[in-house]
């Protein structure tokens, strides 16, 4: 049985049905890549998986248990990377990452944050205020945030935005390490990430009414 699955999901945004009767399933160590044109509902599906949105119909399950039963528990096992970086300009890079790690109960938040920053090649910026970072560096810091505290499910919405080729490689490595430890990844992307044996879900197949 799949660890994380959804069945017959329907999402309605502002009276418009974005997608309907969508099914997906991800196994332990598995990866699911969401593809589809702009507006096909990749972000909406990820927000739905995170619990930020409620499905208009359908069911999300984790190991067979519905998510609605224990939303707190589900939030504890997921990392979400959205379009925004959530990096505070007046805090240093390390403070930014360590805050989120500490909020997720990471004991040695500073140490874990330093390690994660190193993994994304921004370790030497640890004590720099975040307002001096470029867009790509901010993105690396955001990705370091999810690496700094363990969580089985990664939901990544266009994680490669503003990243250079080297950083995309680092992200690929981080995802591979995460999956090797039994972690799950759902990622929406326009760029080719090159994940090993990843399933692909085309949102276009579930466009409500077929009209686009």
């Amino acid at each position: 049985m799949s660890v994380f699955a959804g069945s017959h999901l329907t999402c309605i945004r502002g009276e418009r049905a974005v997608f309907a009767a969508l099914d997906f399933a991800v196994d332990a160590g598995g990866a699911l890549v969401l593809v589809g044109p702009n507006g096909s509902g990749k972000s909406s599906l990820l927000r739905l998986m995170a619990g930020l949105l409620r499905p208009a119909a359908g069911l999300l399950t984790w190991n067979g248990d519905t998510l609605d039963d224990e939303p707190d528990v589900h939030r504890g096992r997921l990392h979400y990377v959205g379009h925004l970086d959530a990096v505070k300009p007046v805090l240093t890079v390390l403070e930014n990452v360590a805050f989120w790690a500490g909020l997720r109960g990471q004991r040695d938040a500073d140490g874990a944050a330093r390690q994660a920053l190193d993994a994304f090649g921004v370790g030497r910026l640890a004590d720099v205020p975040a307002r001096f970072l470029s867009a790509g560096q901010k993105r690396r810091v955001t990705l370091a945030r999810i690496a700094a505290a363990p969580a089985p499910l990664w939901l990544l919405d266009e994680p490669t935005t503003a990243l250079d080729a080297a950083a995309v490689g680092l992200l690929r490595d981080a995802i591979a390490r995460h999956r090797a430890g039994g972690g799950l990844v759902v990622v929406s992307t326009h760029a080719e990430l090159g994940l090993d044996d990843a399933a692909t879900l085309s949102l276009d197949d579930f466009a409500a009414g077929g009209a686009r």
């Binding site: 995170a50 930020l52 939030r75 979400y80 997720r104 109960g105």
Partner: peptide, 15 residues
């Protein structure tokens, strides 16, 4: 809200 932190706070395993 503007920089996305609120989203992450809402997703933290804390009420």
């Amino acid at each position: 809200y503007e920089d996305g932190s609120l989203e992450l706070l809402a997703l933290a395993p804390v009420p």
